[in-house]
C-alpha cells in the first residue's frame, strides 16, 4: 500500500549518546544499600536513587552530570523493569539532565519571592557572565548551563541559585558576578548566604531574644 509501509524504523539516537554504560566500583558499592531500602519484589521503587547514581557517576567520569539512555537501560536491567518505565521517570523529573551539561549547572529560581527580591538582576548577571542567551543552554566553553527552576524552597534567602547540589543565597547582580568568576576559576565558594548570615537568621545578628544567655 503506501510507501511508508516499506520504511523500517531507524533507531533515533543523538550522536552524544554513549552506546554503553556500566556502573563503576563506587556506584556498585552504593547499589546494595539502595536496594535494601525496598522490600523484595519492589526493587523498582529504587529507580530514582539509581538514576541519581548514574548522573553522579557521569559527573565523576565526564565532568558533566547527565543520564544517558544507555544508563537508563542499565538501571532497567538492574531493577528488572521495562526500559520505557525508566524513561518515563527520568523524563518526568527535570532534576535529571538528559543531555550533557556544563561543569556548573546554574539553576536559577525565578518564582515570585525570588523575583520580588531581584532575581531578574541575578539572571541578567548570569547571562552577562556566561554569554548564555536562552534557558537550558550551555555556554560556549562548556563551563555553565543555565536552567530556570521553580521554587527551591529557600525563599527567606531569596534570590538564590542552585549550582549543582549547592545553594548560593541572598544574591544580587554583583555577588552573582563574583560567584560565577570564582566558579570559572575552579574555586567554588562556601555554599549558603553570600552575605555571610547564618542560615536564615537576620542579617547582622539576632534581633530578638538578644538577652538570652546560653551556657556553652
Amino acid at each position: 500500500m503506501g510507501e511508508s509501509a516499506q520504511t523500517n524504523p531507524v533507531p533515533m539516537r543523538d550522536s552524544f549518546q554513549p552506546s554503553t554504560f556500566a556502573f563503576d566500583a563506587e556506584s556498585e558499592g552504593a547499589i546494595p544499600g539502595i536496594l535494601a531500602k525496598y522490600p523484595a519484589g519492589r526493587q523498582a521503587s529504587a529507580v530514582l536513587p539509581m538514576l541519581y547514581l548514574v548522573q553522579n557517576q557521569m559527573r565523576r567520569q565526564t565532568g558533566s552530570a547527565w543520564v544517558p539512555i544507555a544508563g537508563m537501560d542499565e538501571v532497567a536491567r538492574r531493577l528488572d523493569m521495562a526500559p520505557i518505565r525508566v524513561y518515563e521517570v527520568a523524563t518526568f523529573y527535570f532534576m535529571f539532565n538528559l543531555k550533557p551539561i556544563g561543569t556548573y549547572h546554574l539553576q536559577v529560581c525565578t518564582t515570585t519571592p525570588c523575583w520580588l527580591r531581584g532575581s531578574d538582576e541575578v539572571v541578567a548577571a548570569c547571562r552577562a557572565a556566561t554569554g548564555i542567551e536562552g534557558w537550558g543552554e550551555t555556554s560556549g566553553d562548556g563551563v555553565f548551563t543555565m536552567t530556570e527552576v521553580e521554587c527551591l524552597g529557600a525563599c527567606v534567602n531569596a534570590p538564590i541559585i542552585q549550582v549543582n547540589d549547592d545553594f548560593y543565597e541572598d544574591l544580587d547582580g554583583d555577588s552573582t558576578k563574583q560567584l560565577l568568576e570564582a566558579l570559572r576559576r575552579g574555586e567554588p565558594p562556601k555554599p549558603g548566604s553570600v552575605k555571610g548570615r547564618q542560615t536564615s537568621a537576620p542579617e547582622g545578628g539576632p534581633t530578638t531574644l538578644t538577652t538570652l544567655q546560653f551556657e556553652s
Binding site: 539512555i69 526500559p83 520505557i84 518505565r85 518515563e88 523524563t91 518526568f92
Partner: peptide, 28 residues
Amino acid sequence: IAEVAGVPDLGATSRGEHMEVGTYVEKA
C-alpha cells in the same frame, strides 16, 4: 501494550504540556 500484549514498549515521557506518548527510543 503493557497489560494485554505484554510487550511494554509504549510509555508517556516528559510531563504536563510536554507529555508525549511513544517509545522514547524509536523502535517498532
